[in-house]
Computed example of a mutant assay.
Amino acid sequence: MPRKVRDVLRAGPRERGSVTAETAVALPALVLVLAAVLWAVTVVDARLRCVDAARAGARAAARGEALNAVRETVLRSAPAGSRVVVVPGPEVTRVDVSVSVRPLWKSAAPSIEVTASAVSATEIGVFP
């Protein structure tokens, strides 16, 4: 039998339970790291949804759709509670989407403002 395995099997009463104590110390740190990772994934998801929504809105506005229809297009794919600003122009149309993202759990962590903008060339004959 290898020496290390034999030493573990012969562990005295002082060494028993050391794994439990080490786990009890490390577990809160592991939970904190997991919470930070989940929070980061939530923020990145909101950012990607804002980018997709802004692009869809800019394409719709550049085609000459009504501003209410553009807002509906954006809000369908944007995160809940998003704010939308549509700025049509003769050369380009700009859509800004922003949302405040809060942690899923109740904590003192601050909310993060996520924004995205998209610009699309306005089609000829759309803007008066």
Rank of each mutant, 00 (worst) to 15 (best):
E72S: 15
I124V: 15
V43D: 11
K4T: 07
A116I: 11
S100E: 03
A69R: 09
T122H: 15
A69G: 08
R3F: 04
A109Y: 01
G12E: 10
V86C: 12
P103Y: 03
R3K: 03
R59T: 14
V43H: 06
G57R: 11
V101I: 06
V33P: 04
W39H: 06
R49D: 09
V37S: 03
T42S: 14
E123S: 10
E113K: 01
A54V: 09
A40W: 06
R83F: 05
V97D: 08
P2S: 12
A116P: 05
V86E: 15
S98D: 12
A108G: 13
V126L: 08
W105A: 08
L34C: 08
R49E: 07
A118T: 06
R14S: 11
S77H: 05
D45G: 06
P79M: 06
L9A: 03
P88R: 03
S18N: 03
L75V: 15
R16K: 06
V19L: 11
T23H: 04
D96V: 05
S100L: 09
R63N: 10
P28K: 09
G57E: 13
V99S: 08
L48F: 01
E22V: 13
A58Y: 05
A46Q: 12
V85E: 12
P90H: 13
T115K: 09
S117V: 06
V86I: 12
R47F: 04
L9I: 13
G64D: 07
E113T: 00
V84E: 01
D45K: 00
R6Y: 07
P110W: 01
E72W: 06
G17R: 01
A109N: 00
T115I: 02
T20S: 12
V119N: 08
A35N: 05
S98M: 07
P13I: 04
A54C: 14
V97F: 02
L48A: 06
S77R: 15
P90A: 14
V44G: 10
A36Q: 01
R6M: 08
S98C: 03
S100T: 00
P128T: 01
V84H: 11
R10W: 02
V37T: 12
A29E: 03
T122M: 12
L30I: 11
R76A: 15
W105K: 00
R16Q: 10
A116L: 08
R49Q: 11
A60T: 13
N68R: 13
A29D: 04
A109H: 04
L104H: 00
V51E: 09
N68S: 15
G12M: 00
S98A: 13
V74E: 13
R3A: 13
P128G: 15
R59I: 15
A46L: 01
L9Y: 06
V33M: 09
V114M: 10
F127A: 08
S100K: 07
D52K: 11
V84Q: 08
P79H: 11
P88N: 10
V44Y: 00
I124M: 14
T93C: 13
S98Y: 00
V41E: 03
G89L: 11
R63Q: 09
A21W: 01
A80I: 05
V119D: 09
G89N: 14
A35K: 00
A46G: 14
E15Y: 08
A24T: 04
W105P: 00
A56W: 07
D7F: 01
A56C: 10
V86Q: 02
L67C: 04
T93I: 10
G81H: 07
E91Y: 02
R94F: 00
T93S: 14
V84W: 02
G17I: 02
F127D: 09
L38Q: 01
